[in-house]
Design a binder for these strands. Structure first.
Length: 310
DNA sequence: ATCCAAAGGCCTGCCATCTC
DNA sequence: GAGATGGCAGGCCTTTGGAT
């Protein structure tokens, strides 16, 4: 496969999922031109955000900038964008597929039966239809033990927009309304989802059985990123929900708004202190033994090949 | 009619272990 | 040690189904 597809997979998982690659790249190139002409040019906050993502894209894929600048037709750029998009989309799809069954093992304590049982390969019966997934998805601040609230969530009378965060994001699934950031993004289910995607499915258990490099290693990922945490949260939220089809624009599941709201929080300068502490915590959870260049890499490993390309 | 996502099958790469 | 073997993980292909 084309290396751009490969890079697109990791970009989607770690920097920005759910974006339109064509627009991202086209707008990015235009903005570079405008900035060169008029450095004083002001961009809207939205444009500035998009441009930061574009710069991260250029930075994360060696040779991409040259490739884009050297493209001599609109078509060339379109095909580059299409490859990256394909990578991001297929990675997202592979992860939803894989998490769909895996997450069932993480929502009750080991050994405890799940009542009623949830099918590993179907989404019906999840979401607010089930006591356990419902409690996890219930917006922080609402009381899932209240029968009236449960009913309204089930019927949809009470709809939950993506920026109203569910309880499963919080450590021990406990929300403290006097301190809303307490335990935020520190739940075990989120860490497990992250490990499943980035370090390997078996690394979720205490003793990893992996014999092959996981995604983080394949792509030389050495620490968590804001995008990767938001991505794991979005995948977990979708896996717990009853909706069967992942769709960016679906207003019921509202995954894109959810993803962006997490990302916004993590990038908010006003939250920088909390977020830096949080990121350090994540790195200890997920990459505890990481020391730069400490591991020998076999000559033919994917990582070695990637390094050789740089 | 077209597009996209889901699902399962399949293939390949990687690593640990075995066997000689 | 070198080569064979087996299992795990990631990714690709194909089919299917639903939405637009």
């Amino acid at each position: 496969t084309d290396p751009l597809v490969h890079h697109g997979r990791h970009f989607g998982r770690s920097i920005h999922a759910l974006c339109n690659m064509h627009a991202l790249i086209n707008n990015g190139i235009i903005r570079i031109g405008e900035r060169a002409e008029d450095p004083e040019d002001d961009f809207t906050p939205q444009e500035q955000r998009e441009h930061r993502v574009f710069c991260a894209l250029l930075k994360s894929i060696p040779g991409l900038e040259e490739k884009l600048m050297g493209a001599n037709s609109e078509e060339d750029i379109q095909s580059i964008a299409a490859m990256l998009q394909k990578g991001a989309s297929s990675a997202r799809s592979d992860d939803t597929k894989s998490l769909k069954s895996a997450i069932i093992d993480w929502i009750v304590s080991p050994g405890e039966p799940l009542m009623p049982p949830i099918s590993r390969n179907a989404k019906t019966g999840r979401g607010f239809h089930h006591e356990v997934t419902g409690a996890l998805l219930c917006p922080a601040g609402l009381d899932w033990t209240d029968a009236e609230i449960r009913d309204k969530l089930r019927t949809g009378e009470l709809s939950v927009p993506g920026d109203q965060w569910p309880l499963f994001l919080f450590n021990s699934y406990a929300y403290d309304d006097t301190d809303p950031s307490k335990g935020l993004l520190k739940s075990s289910i989120l860490v497990k989802t992250f490990k499943h995607i980035f370090t390997s499915p078996s690394s979720v258990e205490r003793e990893a059985k992996a014999t092959r490099s996981g995604n983080a290693r394949i792509h030389g990922m050495t620490g968590v990123t804001r995008g990767s945490i938001a991505y794991a949260a979005t995948q977990a939220r979708f896996a717990l929900s009853s909706s069967g089809v992942f769709n960016r624009n679906d207003t019921i599941t509202d995954s894109e708004r959810f993803y962006n709201s997490i990302l916004e929080y993590l990038e908010d300068p006003d939250e920088a202190d909390d977020v830096n502490t949080l990121m350090a915590w994540w790195n200890r959870q997920v990459f505890p033994n990481y020391v730069p260049n400490s591991r020998p890499v076999s000559k033919n490993s994917a990582l070695a090949r990637i390094k050789a390309k740089r």
